[in-house]
Design a protein around this nucleic acid. Sequence first.
DNA 1: TTGAAAGCGCTAACAA
DNA 2: TTGTTAGCGCTTTCAA
Lengths: 334, 334
Amino acid sequence: MAKNPVTSGDVARLAKVSQSAVSRTFTPGASVSDRTREKVLNAAQELGYRPNALARAMISGRSGLIAMLVAYLDNQFYPIVLERLSRALQDKNYHVLLFMTEPGRRDDVVQKILEFQVEGIVMASATLSSGLARECARTGIPVVMLNRYVPSSPASSVTSDNIEGGRLVARYLLDGGHERIAYIAGAEDSSTNRDREAGFYKGLAEAGVTAWGRAVGGYTFEGAANAARELFSDTTRPDAVFVANDHMAFSVMDVLRGELGLRIPEDVSVIGYDDVPEASWKAYDLTTVSQSSETMIENAVAILLEQIEKRVVKRRAAVLPAELMVRSSARLPA
Amino acid sequence: MAKNPVTSGDVARLAKVSQSAVSRTFTPGASVSDRTREKVLNAAQELGYRPNALARAMISGRSGLIAMLVAYLDNQFYPIVLERLSRALQDKNYHVLLFMTEPGRRDDVVQKILEFQVEGIVMASATLSSGLARECARTGIPVVMLNRYVPSSPASSVTSDNIEGGRLVARYLLDGGHERIAYIAGAEDSSTNRDREAGFYKGLAEAGVTAWGRAVGGYTFEGAANAARELFSDTTRPDAVFVANDHMAFSVMDVLRGELGLRIPEDVSVIGYDDVPEASWKAYDLTTVSQSSETMIENAVAILLEQIEKRVVKRRAAVLPAELMVRSSARLPA
DNA sequence: TTGAAAGCGCTAACAA
DNA sequence: TTGTTAGCGCTTTCAA
């Protein structure tokens, strides 16, 4: 790592103080006299000294590192979460070590994460295997799952109220007088998809309605396009589609308008979930359920830092309100 | 950091070998007999041992950390670069420490980066102050600027051929028979904007044409919208706009179509730069200049790793070809 | 408030 | 191939 050639010992020598005096000067809240501090600071300045964060971490047991694990960054929801998380942590003097999940080697990645002595883990992709979750708990490293949860896991989670969100969509479409309402699912094993779908069906059921059709998009752009084609291949077609996230909804809208020549919302209504920035781009102007990434991050950071400070890891599950963002991709209720 | 309670010493004791034998077992290429290795591995497994990457870094001088500095992640170009970079480095057993630039405190951030003993720095935002650049050079830490450069800096850079890219756009618009060609600039102090603009004007000049108008969008969504409004406020309007990046181009298209009721490309052609994923979304179908983030990353990683390995930091500037991606947002040449 | 001394967990000579 | 030893640069007792 092309180590910084100047150490606290060098500074001490130049300042004619002990090495520990140098250490104290750079430790917030340590007791140093103004005179000593000044001597040290001057010497440090002159030599271009910079404390070695790794050495500090070794002895203090605090690395200042938080790992963030993500699967992909092409769904805009995640970059935004990542940016916010990174800024929020940077403010508190923590830093994000980024890991991308590698298909099939999820546990290896977490091992690597642990080697770096991170003080906390944010999982915004997949979930922790139960073995690893237990290991983190044992090691006392707080884990927060973002936008996902595993009921049986000791890991904390921050999600929006996906069930309620799904229900809001059902009601809205029902109020809009739609009669053939379909659903395009995300990854079927994800908690977001499960909950959004369950809430959606529940909302429909409350009005005595059942979904007209269903296809799986797997949270990918291509998958969603195929799901849309499948759903609209018959002569009788849905007059509304709830798509499990915005990222897929854009793809669905492209297929409906571009390939099938349908007008939105005149011929078919489309509703998404997440309220990513592109949802408000005029060419899509997507009605969607908003989950505030800002609030999510605030919660995640709060959970993480509290558990780090108190050294008590305890499962917490924050569920944030979901809100319908009405735009023009779905017919308005009369 | 809630340290892992089990150390190499613990493993050594259980395996009845020396602590260095444990170390060797976990050091690729070290000489250990199969028997010893097996004993160690068994003991490690039993105790749940995991090497401490920080301790290793301290002594070996290799932290395995690469810092990535970005300004924002809302322009899709950057998340994609970040994902690719992270995966590429992960493959080589390096990991990305993410830093967001903080307005006005750019140098502080770099100090922090250096404290973590990173082995390299990728700057995908702003640029390094000359003082810091010199400091990195002195410390022997390779710095690669991504999608930007500073001619006088010792830092390496990877960019696309922005001049040629701008020129391609000019030619294409000229060939399409446009007569009032405008430019919407990004951040005026960025090398990308400077080069794209220069190349664009050069391309126009080669045909004896000068730009019809110019406005500044500053690489932000809102800025671009305002720039478009400004440019189109007169009764005579541009019949083509080259927007300095895709992110702004979407905003411009929204204004042109949504607010001004113009048809694209019938009334006005729009061309962007970057070829981010959204450019191929059907609602925009943006003609743009593609710069391959894949190739950029390959180059950046190659430069970084070579300089880390050889311990020789030497400025290199890779300039990758730019290619026009023809879609439907600009009138085709006859 | 200060300095001396003891390590944090590990790697890397060096000898055996 | 193995164990012994000496640190990496720092924080944190402990006495002074």
